[in-house]
Simulated assay, not measured.
Amino acid sequence: MVVDAAWLEERGIASNLRAYYVKNDWLEQPVRSVYRKPRGELNWQPSRTDVCRRIYLMPSGGPD
């Protein structure tokens, strides 16, 4: 989710607190007055495993 400074300000997060969050890597600031939560490293393995499990558990018959 990407939000602007005004949206954060409306929710009580002042500029000094935003700067603190950015400094401590709790928020990223891709461009001026725009913020987002940092993304973790994406890992495809759990997703692939989950898809395989779902396919295996699908019912094999057609509609009744």
Score class of each variant (00 low, 15 high):
Y20D: 05
S15W: 03
W44T: 02
N16I: 08
D50E: 15
N24E: 11
M1A: 10
A5H: 05
N24I: 05
S33H: 13
R36W: 05
D4W: 06
S33W: 07
E9M: 14
S33C: 03
Y20H: 10
D50P: 00
N24Q: 07
Q45M: 10
G61A: 14
I13C: 14
P63C: 00
G61K: 14
R11M: 05
P30N: 12
I13N: 10
R54D: 12
W7C: 03
G61Y: 12
E28K: 08
V22I: 12
E28C: 13
L27E: 04
G62N: 04
R48S: 12
V34W: 15
R48M: 12
Q45A: 15
D25L: 08
D25K: 14
L27D: 09
S33F: 11
A5K: 07
K37S: 11
P46N: 03
A5Q: 08
M58H: 10
P38R: 02
Q29V: 04
T49G: 10
R36P: 00
G40Y: 00
L8E: 03
G40E: 05
V22A: 07
D25S: 08
K37T: 08
V34M: 15
I13T: 10
A14L: 13
D25H: 13
W26T: 00
S15Q: 11
L42V: 07
L8G: 04
V31D: 04
P38L: 01
L57N: 10
L57R: 07
R53C: 01
E41W: 04
